[in-house]
Design a binder for these strands. Structure first.
Length: 302
DNA sequence: CGCCACTCCTGTAGGC
DNA sequence: TGCCTACAGGAGTGGC
């Protein structure tokens, strides 16, 4: 399940391999995943164009050129695989982009939860792409200050787990990292968002930055199907603290890790390290700290 | 408006 | 060994 670290890993690996290349041909090889309205446009209008940019926002990727933006969402099982030479398509391949030097980019997605959409203008401002305009903070692209996050959480009655999964608030966190971030922050997933103190939101921000940073450093998480563009697995699955570990001892206090379904999603937590609390909202100084090492990178977005 | 259930889909794992 | 079923869930949508 590609979340921000997996999508960022793909962007990092793929960028030097495809930026600057000229598209010889783009072929839609399946009727799913590629948005119906732009199936013909993709093959018609991408031929001959050059790739200028490859950007990420939340869990979306955008391949950009002079007058096109090709938007990708990997869904549950989407892969972008780089082929140095022309390669026969395997089942569940939805799009093949062939470059003038003979290399190819294949989009594969067995479960077909992914999306591909073409816009007839250069990326530039993400506000022009509705899917991106709807997204909240991107932890890598935008600094999230604890104070501004706390203010947003004040207005939410849902649990903190649900808030973390809401892409309109923070973009890029999925089910795996939500559990990991809350464990690192010592916050119970069922804690109501508006009940978190400023101090705990500050810890949440730190945990968010540290968890995503480490996952990116390790090349993402492979539970079942994630592969980077050269077919390799990630490394973070060996460092998950709670996700998928119900019944096993907490790495911090040895209490058995619990599992609960929250908003239809499996949620893992340590019942001792992540106590439910009623925070007072007074105390605690909030500095304008950015999220860990994040927020320093600049791309063309915004 | 907020919250939930439902929907799309197929590979994988577990039970028998 | 093989078949069947449950399960995994991102994000949009529609109901209450």
């Amino acid at each position: 399940m590609p979340e921000l670290p997996e999508v960022e890993t793909i962007r990092t690996f793929l960028s030097p391999l495809i930026i600057g290349k000229q598209i010889r041909r783009a072929r839609v090889t399946s009727k799913r995943v590629v948005e119906e309205a732009c199936r013909d446009d993709i093959s018609r209008s991408l031929a001959g164009k050059r790739i200028r940019t490859f950007q990420r926002r939340g869990k979306y990727l955008v391949l950009g050129g002079e007058n096109f933006s090709l938007l990708f969402h990997l869904g549950m099982s989407g892969r972008l695989i780089f082929m140095p030479h022309a390669t026969p398509v395997v089942p569940h391949t939805h799009l093949v982009i062939s470059f003038s030097d003979g290399s190819q980019l294949h989009f594969q997605d067995p479960r077909a939860f992914g999306r591909i959409k073409l816009y007839p203008f250069a990326p530039g401002s993400p506000r022009r792409i509705p899917e991106l305009a709807r997204l909240g903070w991107d932890p890598l692209e935008d600094g999230i200050t604890p104070l501004s996050l706390w203010q947003c959480l004040q207005r939410r009655k849902s649990t903190i787990k649900q808030s973390l999964l809401d892409q309109h608030l923070i973009s890029g966190i999925g089910n795996i990292y939500a559990s990991e971030i809350l464990f690192r922050a010592g916050i119970h997933p069922l804690q109501p968002s508006h009940r978190l103190s400023k101090a705990r939101v500050k810890r949440l921000c730190q945990a968010l930055g540290e968890t995503l940073d480490e996952a990116i450093r390790r090349g993402g998480t492979t539970i079942l199907s994630f592969r980077d563009p050269e077919g390799r697995r990630g490394g973070f699955q060996d460092h998950l603290q709670v996700y998928g570990r119900n019944g096993q001892p907490c790495p911090r206090c040895r209490t058995l890790i619990g599992k609960e379904i929250i908003a239809g999603r499996s949620t893992y937590f340590c019942p001792r390290c992540q106590r439910r609390k009623r925070d007072s909202t007074s105390s605690a100084s909030l500095t304008g700290d950015r999220v860990g090492e994040l927020g320093k990178r600049l791309h063309d977005f915004g």
